[in-house]
């Protein structure tokens, strides 16, 4: 009893000391964090400011808050940057890639996690090795292949989506497979005993329970495709098929001096991502962290 009493007294003393120390030092912590937050946010704030200024005002006041707000830049940029088309294209790229990745990746991961057909280990090794091959090793031959297929009449957009799907295939398989392995098999067995077939086991038991894994993959892949620049620049040459990134690149090139226009365009591109990010902060941050560690 006395020993316990001693420990608890020591604990409270320690805690009180720690509490004091903490509150004193946290001032320093918050100062540092606020400075770093400013570093992250101020460039974006300047962008937002400039997107509602006239060019004349940007000339006199390039960094500060706007004196009069001019919302005209947005419809102007939307028009001149051809955002109606390129936003639509980007949405097609993102949605189609996510859909294909989740369906095909989900099927493959399920087979690898649960059925383990002969050759599974070899296949995992293949994806492990393949995930370390840099894009630069195969971009030139891939460019040739894609051009050949394009000449044969295959839609370039379809080909770009296939490239995106392949690029994130290793990550998808590793992530979804690990989610499925963590799932106890008893649930599936119980469903089978109740007379469910394999397809029903997958759609009624496995999918609902591994939803977080699919959400993670969907977010990581979707964000990657929305922001992707290099592959789209290399493989898409018809301006009507440009995603927002490559189209915006050419747009900035053309209106180099027109900061209000390009700033408004930049806001248009990041707006959907920001909305989604603010709505799904935790999933985004944890998903990207997980994706980053597992690639």
């Amino acid at each position: 009893m006395t020993a316990i009493g001693k420990v608890s007294i020591r604990d409270t003393v320690l805690q009180r000391g720690r509490g004091k120390e903490r509150s004193r030092l946290l001032v320093f912590n918050h100062t540092v964090l606020l400075l770093l937050t400013a570093f992250a946010v101020i460039p974006l704030l300047v962008l937002a400011f400039n997107s509602v200024k006239t060019n004349l005002e940007i000339g006199q006041n390039p960094l500060g808050p706007p004196r009069n707000i001019v919302p005209d830049n947005f419809p102007d940029a939307w028009e001149k940057g051809n955002f109606a088309t390129t936003m639509g294209n980007s949405i097609i790229y993102v949605v189609a890639t996510i859909a294909a990745e989740l369906v095909l990746g989900g099927l493959a991961a399920y087979a690898l996690a649960r059925k383990r057909p002969p050759g599974s280990d070899l296949l995992m090794l293949y994806f492990l090795v393949a995930s370390t091959i840099p894009l630069w090793m195969y971009i030139v031959p891939l460019f040739v292949q894609i051009n050949t297929l394009k000449r044969l009449g295959v839609d370039a957009r379809f080909l770009l989506i296939m490239v995106y799907v392949a690029g994130s295939a290793p990550l998808t398989i590793f992530l979804l497979r690990s989610y499925m392995i963590d799932l106890p098999t008893e649930l599936e067995d119980a469903a089978r005993v109740d007379g469910a077939n394999e397809f029903q086991v997958l759609t009624r038991i496995v999918l609902p329970l591994t939803k977080p894994g699919f959400l993670t993959v969907g977010l990581v892949v979707g964000l990657g495709v929305w922001n992707e620049f290099l592959l789209a620049l290399t493989f898409i040459h018809d301006p009507n098929q440009f995603p927002v990134t490559t189209s915006f690149y050419k747009f900035v090139d053309r209106f180099d001096r027109d900061w209000s226009l390009t700033s408004a365009g930049a806001i248009i591109i990041i707006f959907p991502v920001m909305v989604l990010f603010l709505a799904l902060q935790r999933q985004f941050i944890e998903g990207l962290a997980e994706g980053g560690i597992k690639t």
Partner: peptide, 28 residues
């Protein structure tokens, strides 16, 4: 059930990956 169907599940993504990454890498 244990070999054919699992490989049918795996093959679409694998085939896409082979055509986009493995073959061009060797060609590279």
């Amino acid at each position: 059930r244990n070999v054919i169907i699992p490989w049918i599940f795996i093959s679409p993504l694998l085939i896409i990956h082979i055509f986009v990454v493995a073959i061009p890498a060797v060609q590279g």
